[in-house]
Nucleic acid binder design. Structure first.
Lengths: 373, 373
DNA sequence: CTGAAAGCGCTTACAG
DNA sequence: CTGAAAGCGCTTACAG
């Protein structure tokens, strides 16, 4: 009798009186407990518990009695208490840099969707790349008894905190960024390959001076992309000019500022490979102000393929890092690990791919490429 | 002695032996309990509990002894058990439509940031506008003992589920969308005003036939924006032409398809007010294909001010709905309600504002308007 | 200022 | 197939 919306007067009275008889016992809140369900169904607490979980060692008749009692009393299962007793956990922690970045929100979509299917709930934490915040989040998550953690670690953070958590028996999956020296489960993309295909594409378009702009060299993903950049140049017998490597925050503002430095170079490049799309977009804005036509005067390639990349004019050619896929893989790996703590560590590396649009010169595209969502 | 990273051989041995003495008792996992801390500090469990929470009724000497013991044993506080016993909850549930939509991810940013400050963790659920999923999520959250819920309800959903939850003593804050008949705490924007300022702006630019495109009339936000549209037309003595009201999914694809219908009108409009930016962007893509120049041949206004709006060419004039602010207000309101269940219901309505860019004709803008992030 | 006992809501052996 | 008892890790009155 939990039909509160349009009950007859009788229903409501019945309901009220009925619950009141229990509230007198509990004296506190109208919170129905399994004890009360059992009592109402005329069975023991243990039996009610088994019945509620659908155990096969309970007769159908009893199960139905218990179910009816749960309905009538408006019972709400207390999963928290159950988890405490049975020493399981249905929550997992997720630690990322921030949410206001399509890469991470897409990562979250992938992770959340996959974990949801497995009946797990996620506790979210954002570090804004602060090591102290990361430490605090990890503690909070441990206190909240997470059954596992997925983390995109703060750049430059040691592997110690992660090892410590693993030693507590809590599985950890690293995603996207891997602290140097960290081992164990990892899901990421092949940054080196990504950098290489981007720069290789520019070289094939006859560019000879190519800058690498944005991001910080302490990021493992930066190092990978840079390595790919180096490789592509080396394979083409092109020199590496350190004055064309500009670091900056991985934001629009960062790109807006950094591109100025690039263009101030006495011998400016004809193409720019950006650490990510946000930087590429910021750079394009500045270039627009400077009257430099991207796709004509200067070629640009980004990284990530965020939604804005398909929208900006000219549309941005970029390396897709498939964040959603990254997320679902990380979630699946964590899930496997939680069920099976003793299987050997896994490393999953996704292959990025080049999405060719307009920012390196014209290309025919159909609207299908740019729709979505 | 939880310094596992680079311990001397002696440290490690000591540590191991020490913990082993407890593991023998527990026999299961190397999980340190408050009981063990108390024992090691030579106090009772109650005293250790008080000390850990920094109670003032514990002497400094005792507190320090306990703290030392926690350090040495590597104690991890079990907030879940504590919450169970003390009947409090530090988690709140958040139910939104989806994450892969900048409006909602920004909303999440605002909510998460604010709740984090208050030491609460959020359990996330996405409905994809399915009523059944919403019901399932609500149940899951109740089972997980959330202390409150923030929900952007599925369109057309009755207020019954929400009332039911409130009756269980769990505060609910509605955000953005309000089911008809629902009362209680609500945070939203003034959709009517938003629609009115958008259409009013178009009228001031001498448009006389203005379409309203996208979204579904069952959404309370659609109804609000439509009402503002009507009001603006009425105040200008312009007729309302039902053939210019086109519903569609609130996505890029929806806008892409809907704008075709609009242009097929025997007497097509000169301006379009879109239900949201995603629709406006989809429409702009289609118009580009049709060779219709937005800002010249046709004026467009969006709603939400998502990041893409500042990036697309021409840059989209739109009504900002301040999702992040919406989120932080909702979180703060929920927090107030949780601390103080008996204060009267509040309704917070934020004022939208028109962000003038280029899609209704030229305007000078500085790069400062379009940077950010 | 500190301790012994009871209990939060559930599940897990163990009998029968 | 079902029940009585013990316990998950913590906190809350209640004595002293």
């Amino acid at each position: 009798m939990i039909t509160y919306n349009k009950p007859s007067k009788l229903d409501r009275l019945y309901d009220y009186d009925y619950r009141w008889s229990f509230m007198k016992q509990e004296k506190k809140r109208n919170h129905v407990t399994l004890q009360q369900v059992a009592q109402h169904a005329g069975v023991s607490r243990a039996t009610a518990s088994l019945a509620q979980r659908g155990s096969t060692s309970i007769s159908t008749a009893t199960r139905e009695k218990v179910q009816a009692a749960m309905q009538e009393l408006g019972y709400v299962y207390d999963r928290v208490a159950a988890n405490l007793r049975s020493k399981v956990s249905t929550t997992v922690g997720l630690i990322i840099m921030e949410l206001a970045n399509p890469f991470y929100s897409e990562l979250l979509v992938g992770i959340h969707h996959e974990l949801d299917k497995a009946g797990k709930t996620v506790i979210l934490g954002t570090t804004f790349d602060s090591y102290d915040i990361q430490e605090r989040l990890l503690s909070t998550m441990l206190e909240n008894r997470v059954g596992g953690i997925i983390i995109s670690a703060v750049p430059g953070s040691p592997s110690e905190p992660i090892d410590r958590i693993r030693r507590l028996g809590i599985p950890v999956v690293l995603v996207g960024r891997r602290p140097s020296g960290a081992n164990g489960d990892y899901v990421g993309i092949d940054n080196e390959l990504g950098g290489q295909i981007a720069v290789d594409y520019l070289i094939k378009k006859w560019h000879r001076r190519i800058a690498f702009v944005g991001g910080f060299s302490r990021l493992s993903s930066w190092q990978g992309r840079k390595k790919g950049y180096d490789t592509a140049l080396r394979l083409a017998d092109l020199p590496i000019d350190e004055s064309l490597i500009i670091e900056s925050p991985a934001t629009r503002q960062g790109g807006y500022d950094a591109i100025q430095q690039v263009m101030d170079n006495p011998n400016p490049p004809t193409a720019v490979f950006c650490y990510n799309d946000a930087i590429a977009i910021g750079a394009m804005m500045k270039l627009d102000e400077l009257g430099i036509k991207v796709g004509h005067d200067l070629a640009i390639v980004g990284f990530d393929d965020i939604p804005e990349a398909a929208i900006i004019t000219p549309r941005l050619t970029t390396v897709s890092s498939f964040p959603r896929l990254l997320g679902s893989n990380a979630a699946r790996l964590l899930h496997t690990r939680m069920e099976n703590p003793d299987i050997p560590s896994q490393t999953i590396i996704l292959q990025p791919s080049l999405i060719i649009r307009e920012s390196c010169g014209h290309a025919k595209i159909s609207a299908l490429n740019i729709l979505g969502n």
